[in-house]
Amino acid sequence: MPELTRTEVEEIALLARLRLEPDELDRMQRELGAILEHFQTIAAVDTTGVPPMVHAVPMDLRLRVDVPEPSLPAELALAGAPRREADLLVVPSSIAPGRTGTGTEP
């Protein structure tokens, strides 16, 4: 397994949306490296033909009837929101300043 570089740690932190201070990044690189080292034990195991176990107890998906239940009132749904305007949640804009429009990511 490849060595964990500082750049890689930074990339993962961005992917995970975790702001890490420089000392945290250092420590993370060290500690994750040590943990990954430990994972060498399973890299060597031949698992050809062994099915991955996704669920601890085998079962099929159960199906629910298509009948609505009452929604949470907006007031309750938004009660914990750090920022809101009327009945909308508010976040910093995700697009370049000056542009408008609506859009949903991917």
């Binding site: 062994v50 991955p52 176990m53």
Partner: peptide, 12 residues
């Protein structure tokens, strides 16, 4: 190499 491999180990 990681998650799937670990799930295979889980089967074992």
């Amino acid at each position: 190499a990681y998650y799937k491999k670990a799930q295979q180990i889980r089967t074992l």
